[in-house]
Structure formats: structure tokens, C-alpha cells
């Protein structure tokens, strides 16, 4: 069994599931460059942590890898196909990617179970199947008794676990987490990382975690350091 922070061992090295080639992302008509030529390969089943100082471009890189945004230059390949061209970004996000955000981003008017189901509404699954799957995921997150609570009735750690359940709702191949412990205390941080690593190991998913916490980054089998929009190591 892996420890909360070591992330376990790589599950598969059958070739890159994700590849970034020459990624440049600029804002404000080119005056601000968040990424300046990033090349990166992530193998299927790999767990990688991306760390760097604030403003280094780590979240921008994650957003491009997850199809949330498009690069100014360069391309992202998923299983050898170019995102945004051969692979539709919406379909990519709905079928292949599970996102976890620092701010949880739960919908305040929906109960925990409904927040999980909302990710499946775009997948045309039957309502009872959606509800059953949401309940099973929340049970797995240890929230079996909290599934009909609204976000404001949950603790920060519980909210992030609902967000993780939501990220798993579409049974993704990629789990992308942007500062998943940024709003949590140390106990909850350890709990959440333990949960994520256990999920990755159990399901054989590829996981990329953006973090500014050295403990989490160093515990990952692969640690990618980024500074000023370029990968250092």
C-alpha cells in the first residue's frame, strides 16, 4: 500500500498518452508569456507532479494538457492525436479527463450527489444510472452519509472529496488536479493525496498534479519543475 505522499509506483509505461510539443501560451497580445516552448511526454498510467513558483506557468500547462485552453503555438497530442484538431476538446474533456480544482468549484444549488451527476448530464446516461454511480463514488470517497448535503453544509475536505467524485464520474483516463490541497489543512491535504494516489493505483489512471507543496511534488514518481514558462527538469 502506498503512503499518502509517495504516490506509489508507475502503473504502465506503454508509451506517451500525452505529449506537448513546443507549447507557447501568451496573453495580453503577446506581452505576457506564460509558457515559452514546453516539450513534455506523460506515459499512460504515470503519476507526475508539476511544481514551480507562483506565475511559473504550471497551471497554464495543466489547462492546455486538459483541453481547457488552447496554446498560442505548439500542440498537445493525446494518444498520438492532436487536441483541438483530430480530437474535439469538449469530447476530450467529457470522455477522457477528470479535473480537480483548488477552489473545488462545486455548484452551490446542487447537493453533493447532484454535483457528481452534473458531470454525467452531458454523457446521455440514464438518470438512475447517473444517480447510482454518483452514490457509489461518494461512498468510495467516504461520503455515504453526506451525499444529500449542499456544499455549504460540508467541510473543505468533504467538498474536495465531492469534487474528486465528480472528476471520476466520467471514468476518465487522465486525472488532472490543479493545487488540489491548496485550500486544505495538513490533515485534509494528506487525506486527499492518499485518496488520489489510491484511486490512481486502483484504476490505473494517468495523474498529473500541479502543486506548490514540495512534499507532494517530491513524493510523486516524477517531478517536473517549471520556472518562467519553461521546464527545468
Amino acid at each position: 500500500m502506498s503512503s499518502p505522499l509517495n504516490g506509489g509506483s508507475p502503473i504502465s509505461t506503454s508509451g506517451p498518452i500525452l505529449e506537448a510539443r513546443g507549447l507557447v501560451k501568451s496573453y495580453d497580445e503577446g506581452r505576457v508569456e506564460a509558457l515559452r516552448g514546453v516539450d513534455l511526454k506523460i506515459d499512460a498510467g504515470e503519476y507526475a507532479a508539476i511544481s514551480g513558483p507562483s506565475g511559473s506557468g504550471k497551471s497554464t500547462l495543466l489547462h492546455l494538457l486538459g483541453g481547457l485552453d488552447t496554446a498560442t503555438q505548439g500542440q498537445v497530442f493525446f494518444n498520438g492525436s492532436v487536441l483541438g484538431k483530430a480530437v474535439d476538446l469538449d469530447t476530450y474533456r467529457s470522455r477522457q479527463v477528470g479535473f480537480i480544482f483548488q477552489a473545488f468549484y462545486l455548484l452551490p444549488t446542487l447537493r453533493a450527489a447532484e454535483n457528481v451527476q452534473v458531470a454525467m448530464l452531458a454523457l446521455h446516461e440514464k438518470a438512475n444510472h447517473r444517480a447510482e454511480r454518483a452514490a457509489a463514488l461518494l461512498e468510495e470517497m467516504g461520503l455515504g452519509t453526506r451525499m444529500n448535503h449542499f456544499p455549504n453544509q460540508l467541510s473543505a475536505g468533504e467538498r474536495q472529496r465531492v469534487a474528486i467524485a465528480r472528476a471520476l464520474a466520467n471514468d476518465p483516463t487522465l486525472l488532472l488536479a490543479d493545487e488540489p490541497t491548496g485550500n486544505l489543512d495538513s490533515v485534509n491535504s494528506a487525506h486527499i493525496m492518499d485518496l488520489l494516489c489510491g484511486i490512481r493505483e486502483q484504476r490505473g489512471m494517468t495523474m498529473i498534479v500541479v502543486t506548490h507543496e514540495n512534499d507532494i511534488a517530491n513524493a510523486a514518481p516524477r517531478h517536473i519543475r517549471i520556472r518562467d514558462g519553461k521546464i527545468e527538469s
Binding site: R93, S94, A119, L121
Partner: peptide, 11 residues
């Protein structure tokens, strides 16, 4: 958030 979860524009 919905778009990040894979909702298409038409949804």
C-alpha cells in the same frame, strides 16, 4: 465549470 466537465456549447 460545466464546460470544464465536458459540457459542449450546445449543452
Amino acid at each position: 465549470i460545466l464546460r470544464a466537465l465536458g459540457w459542449k456549447g450546445r449543452h
